[in-house]
Simulated assay, not measured.
Amino acid sequence: MKRVDLKRILLMRITLFALVLLFCAIAVTLKQTRDRLRADIPRTGGTMKQLIETEIARATPPFVRDLHGIELTGLEGIGRLVHFCAAVTDIYSRPVVQRCFGDAEAPRWLPASLMRSVVGEEARYIGPVGKYPGIKVGELTVTPNFASVAQSVWSDIRNLLIITAGVLLLNVLVYLPVRRVLRPTDDILRGLGRMEAGDLSVRLPSFELIELQRISDVFNHLAERLENTMGEQRELARRLLEVREEERRRLARELHDELGQCLTSIQAEAAYARELAHDQLPALTPSAEAISRIT
């Protein structure tokens, strides 16, 4: 089974969770910006066309298709609300005037080209520009001001980065007390090592953390019971040795006393038989002497 460090796992998981949330928030911000621009530019394009036609009507006489002198001043009010770029071409597709509202320099970390690729070509309005009495004098193209949009999006991302940095800082602030609280686990491991080596007198100290204190209480109670049990086993083994030695002495004493008496009796009977055989039956004398000798 793979061993893990609780403190390190806690730090890594919270950090990974914060980074995933950051990337998700950035993705949501980019998607919302894309959807907003794709909806705002086409919706406000018609209003911009009317304002440009009003400006053209004031700046040029009727039936004149020349658009020179148009400055798109009528779009300044909308330009303060929606950052866009407007380009007007004449009926021959020659550029007449181009102006961007909400000018801002795109941040280095989020270039305008990247925002252009994120938003896509759907955020665009193209419509004819006419004048009374229904004469087409040019064409209007409205696109987002990607540099200004990038600056706005970068401001939101910067706020997300600040929030993420705060979460990571909080993670570190949580990690430090956890590491301090779990530091006594080294004492627990040393105590377990001493118990494994046979030292049952080891005891764990008191801990600040309630969970570790419970472990300490259980460990000390177990060590005390093991020490008492081992003491009782040693006493039992000693008592068994004493009983066995006492039984051995008793058996030796019984063997000595009973067997000695039997041998003495056999010796006496053999002596009597030898004397009797010597007087009455000499042929039994060797057998009587052999019994006496073996005895």
Rank of each mutant, 00 (worst) to 15 (best):
H256L: 08
Q267D: 14
A268E: 13
A223Y: 03
M1Q: 09
F207I: 01
P107T: 00
E232T: 08
L161Y: 10
D66K: 06
P42Q: 01
S155N: 05
Y175F: 07
T285L: 14
L281D: 14
M230L: 13
R8F: 05
S148A: 14
A270F: 03
V119N: 02
I9W: 13
Y175K: 00
I70G: 02
E139Y: 06
E139W: 06
R158A: 09
F207W: 02
A87Q: 10
A147Q: 03
S93F: 09
W154A: 15
Q98R: 11
L114G: 07
L161A: 09
L169D: 01
V28T: 13
L114W: 03
R203H: 06
A150N: 04
L259Y: 04
L51F: 12
G46T: 10
L16G: 12
P107R: 02
T264S: 12
M1Y: 08
T89I: 06
E227R: 13
L209E: 13
T73V: 11
Q213C: 04
G46V: 13
S292G: 13
L240N: 07
I9E: 15
H256S: 12
L204P: 03
F101N: 00
E105Q: 07
G134W: 08
L263H: 03
I56C: 03
L226M: 11
P61V: 12
P177C: 01
W154V: 05
V118T: 03
E55C: 01
L281H: 10
V181D: 02
V167I: 15
M230N: 11
L21W: 05
G134F: 08
N145Y: 07
I135M: 11
L30G: 09
R58Q: 10
R124M: 11
A59E: 09
E122N: 09
N145Q: 06
Q213D: 10
M115E: 00
I78Y: 08
E232I: 06
G130D: 06
R253F: 04
A237M: 05
L204D: 01
C85S: 09
R225H: 11
T285P: 05
L204I: 06
R253G: 08
E105N: 04
G134R: 05
V243W: 13
L19M: 11
P128C: 02
R248N: 10
V88Y: 01
L176Y: 07
A112W: 00
G198W: 01
L81S: 14
L276H: 08
V64S: 13
A59N: 12
W109F: 08
T89L: 04
L192M: 07
G198C: 01
I78P: 01
V118C: 00
V153N: 00
C100N: 02
E254R: 15
L236I: 07
L284R: 02
L281P: 01
P286L: 04
D156A: 15
T141D: 05
S117I: 04
Q267V: 06
D279P: 00
R203C: 05
C85I: 09
R65Q: 11
K131W: 00
G69L: 01
I70D: 04
M195D: 04
R234A: 14
C24Q: 07
R94N: 12
D199A: 03
L16T: 13
R158C: 03
G138S: 01
A270S: 14
V119K: 00
P111T: 00
F63Y: 15
R179H: 02
D103Y: 06
V64L: 14
T229H: 14
I9M: 15
L263S: 05
T143C: 07
A25R: 01
K136Q: 13
G191Q: 02
A223F: 06
